[in-house]
Amino acid sequence: MTTVAMTVNGKAVSVDSEDRALLVEVLREKLNLTGTHVGCDTSQCGACVVLVDGVAVKSCTMLAAQADGSTVETIESLAKNGELHPMQVAFNENHGLQCGFCTPGMIMTAVDMVRRRGKTLDDTTIRHELEGNICRCTGYVNIVKAIKAGAARM
């Protein structure tokens, strides 16, 4: 067992967990932050993307212990005072989801993308940046549209 101290969504937390626990397991099972999803569990699909120290990572491919001392942001951090984040609004308005399972990872990847690449994103950039996020319901057309629109409003 190890004690992992992190700042999660702005709050300092300290969690006792097994050394082998993945970050996503601690987020979902110890902190009840179930917005972060486990899709493939093999580092491919990106449903589990969260921001660690400000950048997107796959929380199924990182031990919680590695995040000790880090700042973690999950999908739950985006809406403020009942108001959806501009990227969430854009996914809603552009129908950027169907079943919604991949959406938390898509949106956290989109937020990371805007932080690194700026608010003006072309389709090619968005599609390259989405290489680690898989949607199996439909295509990516509306996801790309949503990210472009959400980026402009962030």
């Binding site: 580092s43 993307v49 796959k58 993308m113």
Partner: peptide, 9 residues
């Protein structure tokens, strides 16, 4: 290499 999240780690 890989994708953005992989490149961050």
């Amino acid at each position: 290499i890989g994708d953005p999240a992989v490149r961050h780690k």
